[in-house]
Design a protein around this nucleic acid. Structure first.
Lengths: 234, 234
DNA sequence: AATCTATTGTTTCACTTTGAGACAATAATA
DNA sequence: TATTATTGTCTCAAAGTGAAACAATAGATT
């Protein structure tokens, strides 16, 4: 068991990732389900002693999704005492057959440096970690209860995403390289949780001068075919 | 020496605060100067083992400025390996007559959870810590070189402040309870680093419906007296 | 008391952006 | 050829913004 064998991690410091994906018109995030307990949690991990904090988060993302070169943004560090519940980690570990000293570093207090990632849903190859039965997508608008303060972490991630979406124009990271205007609009609608006006959205997006127009997409449907767009490379 | 006597801190975790004040038309921050070395750094500290992360930052702020109930916002956590330079802390400590084991927790790697604060310049009572000669105001537009990555921390703080200023309407925290429209405009100009149009600024601010108008301020100058305003309490 | 100066609060007007809808284009079907 | 569903563009009114003009006024000057 890698996590328990290795002593090369910084104590007290963890990271958690809110990994957003978009599929079938819905915004979703990845959650891990731990063995037996049925508990759900954000994917996360620890920081190696000689590793940049950001590198640790990238490594964790790579391990769970197989993806490199992802849009990843650190948004908050959670450090309340209320999140210190050693019995939670202890239960998770015991369900996997690990019985630790009460003063083992993994049972001590942690602060969580939290990141959110925006990924292309289709490109992910999901891989659970050693303590989990599964890793799977959950709709953001219908999330189950998560361990510790992970629900609060998701809320803050979504809030930050909403605040940054139009300023940083990062919505395209949830779509494939090429997409229709309607798909892009659906991403925005899923993130903001409300319908947007089609013509206004199109005018605004085209006016930003960040999209490149490509060939039309013929889907076989009996109506005008939409153009495909991509975000202009800087 | 409190810091060295106490073992009750979390290792590897520090906080740093970019404390903004406004005076004579300039945006300023507080910097500590360490004994002998002449090195300058952001005020900061460590987190007690049974203390909320945010509480630690508030405590640090209180210790240096005497102020409670301050606008304080966590904006980023710095955790690169590049910021791990034990010889810096060692030099600072030795200049104060402390000679530590190389494996002392204060000489180990730290990540810095960083906050910025907005305070009323006039209300501050400055108090250096045990390792510092002085704590003093420095103009943001003419900052000296700071230790480690503290210049980068200030940059990110200022960037976050600029991004949040109009959305969160927090500029008033840099002024006394009551202020003139011109003073508020000067705060905005200092933060954005550019002149704003007087009439547009006034119209926008009044249109936001967040200001309460009070009596006029007669300064003795020979021109129309401006109204005093305060931010409407929620 | 009348005039002057500096600054403030408000209004005006052109210009731009936005909300809401109309209209024209078109890919496949009937 | 007409129909349907959807897309891309245009129109027009409403709202917001930049730039400047105008009016008010506290104290100084005459």
């Amino acid at each position: 068991m890698t996590v328990l064998e290795t002593k090369g991690f910084l104590p007290h410091i963890a990271f958690d990732s809110v990994i957003f994906g978009f599929s079938k018109g819905k915004l979703k995030i990845l959650l891990m389900e731990y063995h037996d307990t049925g508990w759900l949690a954000l994917p996360g991990g620890f920081v190696r002693k000689n590793e940049d904090l950001d590198e640790a988060a990238k490594r964790g993302l790579k391990e769970r999704t197989g993806l490199d070169n992802i849009y990843l943004e650190q948004f908050y560090t959670f450090g309340n005492m209320a999140r210190f519940k050693p019995e939670v980690m202890q239960t998770i570990l015991e369900a996997n057959g690990f019985f630790l000293d009460p003063d083992h570093w993994m049972l001590d207090r942690f602060i969580s440096v939290s990141y959110f990632a925006l990924i292309d849903f289709e490109k992910v190859i999901l891989t659970p970690d050693e303590l989990s039965d599964s890793i799977a997508w959950y709709e953001i608008e219908n999330l189950p209860e998560l361990i510790l303060d992970h629900n609060a972490i998701v809320s803050k991630a979504l809030q930050t995403l909403r605040e940054n979406l139009e300023r940083k124009l990062i919505g395209g990271n949830l779509l494939p390289e090429r997409f229709t205007m309607n798909e892009l609009q659906q991403v925005y609608e899923a993130i903001f949780g409300q319908k947007l006006r089609r013509t206004t959205f199109q005018r605004k997006m085209l006016g930003l001068d960040i999209l490149e127009r490509h060939e039309k997409l013929y889907t076989g449907k009996s109506h005008k075919a939409p153009y495909l767009y991509s975000f202009r490379k800087v």
